[in-house]
Amino acid sequence: MTDLVLSDFAVARGPCDVLRDINLSVGAGEFVGLLGPNGAGKTTLMRGALGMMPHRGQSSLSALSARDRARRVAWLPQAREIGWPVSVADVVTLGRLPHLARGQKPGETDRAAIDAALSRMGLDGFRTRIATQLSGGEQARVLIARALAQDTPLLMADEPAAGLDPAHQLGLMDTLAAEAARGRSVIASLHDLGLAARYCTRLVVLWQGGIAADGPPAEVLTPDLLARVFQIRAYVRHTDDGPICQPLGVV
C-alpha cells in the first residue's frame, strides 16, 4: 500500500522551479530519509506534497480534503511552536483532533493513543508539566509525541532530530524506525548522514531541484554522490551495527 505518490511534481517560487519532475512513491513500512544540502527543497517537497504550497503535477495527499488528509498524514514542521503555556497532555491531545467529530470528547481509543505516544517519547512523567517551560529538546519530544498520537499511516517530519541530545536523537530514530517496522511509513528530512545511514530503510537525496539518488543507504551514500551533492568526503563502512557514515572533510 502506498501512502504518498508524487508524479511529475513541481513547485515554483516566483519564476523559477524549486523542484521539478519529482516522481516518488512511498509505501508502508518504509523509513525514508530525505537528504540534501541547505536549500535543496526538502521542506518544500514535504509542504508541497501536503498541499500547503501551490504545485504542479500530482500529489496523492494534496488531492484529499483537509480532514481526510489529517487522518492520512501527520506533519511535524521544523518550527517548534507551542504558543500557550498548556500542559504536555493537552499538546499531545491535539493530535487526536482529526479523529474527533464536532463536539466529541476524546474517548478510550484517543486516550490509548495519547498514552502510547507519551510513553514512546519517554514523557510519562511529563503529562501535567507546562509544555512551554520545558527545555527545547523536551518540547521537541512533546511535539513528536503529538504527531505520533495522530496515529496516521504516514508521518512526515522536518528535521525532527535537530536540537536533541545524542541519546534522544538515537531514541527518536529508534522510535521512527519502530513505527515504520509496525507498518507505518515515515518521511523525515535529516542533516545527520550518520543517523540517516544507520536507521533509514531508504534515502532520497534532493539536489538542484530534482532527485539525485533514491535507494537503500548503502547504495545512495557513495563517495561520488557525497562529493557531488554535499561537497564532502566521508568514511562509509558496512559493519555489524549497520552502515556507518562519518563525514571527514570538505571537498
Binding site: 506533519w75 493530535g95 495522530q150
Partner: peptide
C-alpha cells in the same frame, strides 16, 4: 474552539490537523 486549540502549534501544524 478546536481551530484555536490547534493553532497553539502554529499555522502549519494547525493546517495539517485539518484546520482551514
Amino acid at each position: 474552539g478546536r481551530a484555536f486549540d490547534a493553532l497553539t502549534l502554529g499555522e502549519d501544524s494547525a493546517a495539517s490537523l485539518g484546520v482551514n
